[in-house]
């Protein structure tokens, strides 16, 4: 296997919501084409960290970041970085499926349309390709003009993944992508993550320890805004180095 390079890296990262110190001196480097899982109890900062990776927190008042986040070695909080350009590179899928109240087709090509791409043939091709990648094409190919809200929860979430893939990012952030879904849909999403791993760098926040175990190559454990442990998922789940990690993953927390 060729050596993978650092896709995403945080250096001495601190984040604040007003006076609240949400992330404390985070240092982490994530390899390309790997799945990294963020685990930790609610309010530990894992979602905050995920959302700093595509600057989704920019709109939150009082939020500020110190330190560097490097995407392919480039600081994404630098002044000359345009947020919309960054988000084309770093896609995101949310906890609750959030399709737009439009047709399936319109949902998938939204990202392209706002970039000004209007040519029907390009949009159609992109839509098919990303729906196939999201393992949804066979289910929806005959009803692309139907409302996305008519799909099941699991299908909606895969649609949201397709929508994110359509603008061909290199990183995919997933914020508890299966927590609102039934076990079968969850399994499908997890399958998808294995597939996507070949082409994308994936960062996933999850509350489900088993999910972290099943899908990820690396796991990062956050607690009270600190990165407590970051290691190969195998090592983390069989012999965690830190006692707090051990207590958390064995369910003996607190």
């Amino acid at each position: 296997m060729s050596k993978k390079h650092n896709k995403l890296e945080a250096k001495n990262l601190n984040a604040y919501y007003g006076d609240f110190h949400a992330l404390k001196n985070i240092n982490i480097a994530m390899d390309e084409k790997n799945v990294t899982a963020f685990i930790g109890p609610s309010g530990c900062g894992k979602s905050t960290f995920l959302r700093t990776l595509n600057r989704m927190n920019d709109y939150i008042e009082g939020f500020r970041v110190e330190g560097d986040i490097l995407l392919d070695g480039r600081d994404i909080y630098a002044k000359d970085v345009r947020v919309d350009e960054l988000r084309k590179e770093v896609g995101m899928v949310f906890q609750k499926p959030n399709p737009f109240p439009k047709s399936i087709f319109e949902n998938v090509v939204y990202g392209l349309k706002i970039q000004g791409i209007k040519k029907k043939s390009i949009l159609e091709e992109a839509a098919e390709q990303s729906l196939r990648q999201a393992a949804l094409w066979e289910e929806v190919k005959d009803k692309l003009d139907k409302s996305a809200l008519a799909l099941s929860g699991g299908q909606q979430q895969r649609l949201c993944i397709a929508r994110a893939l359509a603008i061909s990012p290199s990183v995919l952030l997933m914020d508890e992508p299966a927590s609102a879904l039934d076990p079968i849909s969850t399994a499908k999403i997890e399958e998808l993550i294995y597939e996507l791993k070949n082409d994308y760098t994936i960062v996933i926040v999850t509350h489900n320890m088993q999910q972290a175990g099943r899908v990820s190559d690396y796991t990062a454990f956050f607690y009270m805004g600190e990165l407590v442990e970051y290691n190969k998922t195998k090592s983390m789940f069989t012999s965690p180095k830190n006692e707090r990690t051990q207590n958390y993953i064995t369910g003996r927390f607190g």
């Binding site: 609750k96 439009k102 990202g111 706002i114 970039q115 994110a164």
Partner: peptide, 27 residues
């Protein structure tokens, strides 16, 4: 209009105006 719709739009690289015009106002 739920936050999640705006988040979805922003996450795809839409500007504020694009989000308001394409998502928030129609909804």
């Amino acid at each position: 209009v739920p936050r999640s719709i705006r988040d979805g739009s922003y996450a795809l690289g839409a500007s504020k105006w694009q989000t308001v015009w394409n998502q928030v106002l129609p909804a």
